[in-house]
Amino acid sequence: MRFTLEVWTQASRDEEGHFERYDVDGIDPDASFLEMLDELNARLAAEGKRTIAFDSDCREGICGMCSLTIDGQPHGPNQVTTCQTFMRDFEDGATIRVEPFRSGAFPVVRDLVTDRSALDRIVQAGGYVTTKTGPKPDPNAAPVPPAVQQKVMDAAACIGCGACVAACPNGAAMLFTGAKVTHFNLLPQGQPERASRARSLVLAMDAEGFGGCTNYGECARVCPQEIPLDVIGMLNREYRRGARREDDTVGTRT
């Protein structure tokens, strides 16, 4: 198969970027999108030209590192990570636009590589359980009903890729934050800090410059782990409950 790629090229964070055109042919239809980029890079290198920088690691959809926006859709046309997107899903001869995940909160490091540490700073505000050292309670003493466990697991499946942010017209990180809050606020050991957790994470989320949610729902349409919009409803509920209290926020408690 052959393609024309328009790839975002940016030398460093503070420099301007632009789209660069490349023609690539002889691509195996079963090659993944990243394998196609590898092939392109190999040919560029052989010609002594500048190669395209992009993030990747596990190549199997679990590490959350690959972060390409393909033809305007984060990760690509199917609801899977870029590394699991195959060239057979594109039309032969198509022109494909390749960009990094776009968000004001994800500065571009180089070409298609972005800095997603804003998501970490949200988690740092309280996306965890505060424990003391010492013997831990027997998990079987606090049984978790299967329905709850399923919900928690669905939320905990988040791989932190940031596609939700890249798909949101408002640049919001609600699906990510909602997943964290849903995960911890439903567990028995997450109950003591339930109210302040939602509040702290939302404060941090806003402070990082993410936008607000107006319920477009694009985030859930691109999430490769299929995290449901319900986590946003949960976050809204938990925030409302937490907003009434004047507790210390979790982040200041060690």
């Binding site: 776009r102 909160a105 949101c168 017209p169 408002n170 936008g211």
Partner: peptide
């Protein structure tokens, strides 16, 4: 105010509609 925050959060590259309803847009 939310729209202003969104414009700053999104940056110059607008989001392509993936499935959002006409009403929401």
């Amino acid at each position: 105010q939310l729209r202003r925050r969104a414009a700053a959060a999104r940056g110059p590259h607008k989001a392509k509609p993936i499935g959002r309803s006409l009403a929401s847009r």
